[in-house]
């Protein structure tokens, strides 16, 4: 995996702590977008889903992309999550040029650095809550069993779902499923957690609890959380808000509740 300049993409995270500090002076942003465009072709018609996006997201942030349906939130999250590549512009995630990743290296990059939380939870129905959290450690990163079990226990404790560890997704409530999803996203200690409308399928009380949980996890593990929402109250929980309208990303706003 290489950046546009030919250097190794994951070099920052491979550096020693002291070197990271030095390196950090040159590279502060976890996500950096400069003139990023994403154009889809829908038959004969070209659709610009993201237009000249420029933004920076620092490590440890709690960020929200807000906007109405079709404003390009999901497309932007897909680009940041290395599930898609920009049509033009420079998008760097964890010091890696997203456009330079092919299918396999993108998968490996996501496995190492990115966790996902989905609107519909997307837990694997044949696995228990604990096994769902274990999945990325086992199937993606192939950790040894003792280390895996320890981490699963820690994560289930962290999201307060230990009592439901052996239950299957269809035996869990929506809030419990999303807690499991949060634990799964964080199990590998991903630096970046992307959540596309994580509260859309939850009632308000549960939705706020999930957002609180995500923030607590950010505080506990230092991961950066980026989530999309169109719910103004949920949006207020973010420390930094980017508003999207017709694919254009507005300037970063500090949430009032966070000064």
């Amino acid at each position: 995996m290489r950046c546009a300049d030919g250097s190794k993409a994951t070099r920052f995270w491979n550096l020693k702590v002291t070197d990271r500090l030095t390196h950090g002076r040159r590279m502060m942003s976890l996500v950096s977008a400069q003139s990023v465009n994403k154009v889809y072709r829908n038959g004969e018609v070209e659709v610009a889903a993201v237009k000249s996006a420029d933004f920076e997201i620092e490590p440890g942030s709690f960020v929200s992309f807000v906007g109405p349906s079709g404003s390009g939130k999901s497309t932007l999250l897909n680009l940041i999550g290395c599930l898609d590549r920009p049509t033009s512009g420079d998008l760097r995630v964890v010091d890696t040029d997203v456009a330079a990743l092919d299918r396999k290296t993108a998968a490996a990059f996501r496995a190492q650095h990115i966790g996902f939380i989905f609107q519909d939870f997307n837990l694997i129905p044949v696995l228990t809550a604990a096994e769902n959290v274990e999945y990325p450690l086992l199937m993606v990163q192939n950790w040894p069993v003792a280390r895996r079990r320890k981490r699963v226990g820690e994560m289930l404790e962290a999201v307060d779902i230990m009592a439901q560890a052996d239950k299957y997704p269809d035996q869990l409530s929506g809030g419990q499923k999303q807690r499991v999803a949060v634990a799964r996203a964080l199990a590998t200690r991903a630096k970046l957690i992307l959540a596309d409308e994580p509260t859309a399928n939850l009632d308000h009380t549960t939705a706020y609890r999930i957002i609180d949980l995500m923030k607590r996890m950010r505080d506990e593990f230092g991961s950066t959380f980026i989530f999309s929402t169109h719910d103004p109250k949920i949006m207020e929980a973010a420390e930094m808000i980017f508003t999207l309208e017709d694919g254009k990303v507005g300037p970063a706003e500090r949430s009032e509740s966070h000064g």
């Binding site: 998968a107 996501r110 999945y135």
Partner: peptide, 16 residues
């Protein structure tokens, strides 16, 4: 299909 999408998003390699 959605399950496949989920595990692929998590970084599961095509071979797996």
């Amino acid at each position: 299909i959605r399950e496949i999408g989920t595990i692929a998003a998590m970084g599961t390699q095509p071979g797996s």
